[in-house]
Deep mutational scan, measured.
Amino acid sequence: KKSYVLIKVKNPKTKETHTIVVPEENLEEVLKALASQPNVKVVDIERFP
């Protein structure tokens, strides 16, 4: 059974918020990819039960 993680990201320029759902096993690479985006800020990470 896969567990999923909900990542909320915000664009500081446009103030838009997006929610991305990723499998927990991919969380680290997704966070690394997001960290390299200049106008993306991770605001929240939630685990799915």
Rank of each mutant, 00 (worst) to 15 (best):
V21S: 06
V5H: 02
P12N: 15
K2Y: 03
E25G: 06
L34W: 02
T17V: 14
E28G: 07
E16Q: 11
N11V: 05
V43R: 02
P12F: 15
E25I: 05
K10P: 00
S3F: 14
Q37M: 13
V22E: 01
V9D: 00
L34F: 04
E25W: 08
K32I: 08
P12R: 15
V43Y: 03
I20C: 08
R47G: 04
H18Y: 15
K13D: 09
N11Q: 02
T17R: 06
N26M: 14
E46N: 07
P49Q: 10
K41S: 09
S36M: 13
I45S: 01
I20A: 01
E16N: 06
S3R: 11
V22P: 00
E29Q: 10
K2E: 12
V22M: 02
E25F: 04
K2Q: 09
K15N: 13
L27V: 05
K32S: 07
H18V: 11
K1Q: 09
E25P: 03
T17D: 03
L27R: 01
K1T: 08
I45H: 02
T17A: 04
P23I: 08
P38W: 02
L27A: 04
L31M: 04
S36C: 11
A33C: 14
E16F: 07
K10G: 05
L27S: 02
L6D: 04
V43M: 09
N11R: 03
T14I: 02
K32M: 10
R47P: 11
E24A: 07
E24P: 04
F48A: 07
V42A: 02
V9K: 00
Q37E: 07
V42R: 01
L6R: 14
Y4C: 13
V22I: 09
K1M: 08
N39T: 05
N26I: 12
V43C: 05
I45N: 01
K41H: 13
E29T: 07
P12K: 15
N39A: 05
I20G: 00
K2H: 14
K2N: 07
H18R: 13
P49I: 08
K10I: 15
T17S: 06
Y4N: 04
E16P: 01
A35M: 12
I7R: 00
T14N: 05
F48P: 04
T17G: 03
N11H: 06
T14A: 03
F48E: 04
A33H: 12
P49E: 13
K8T: 14
R47S: 07
V42C: 05
L27T: 02
T17E: 10
A35E: 10
T14M: 03
P12T: 14
V42T: 02
L31K: 01
E29M: 12
L27G: 01
L31N: 00
K15A: 08
S3H: 15
I45T: 03
K13A: 09
L31E: 01
D44T: 15
V5N: 01
K15C: 12
P49H: 11
R47K: 08
F48K: 05
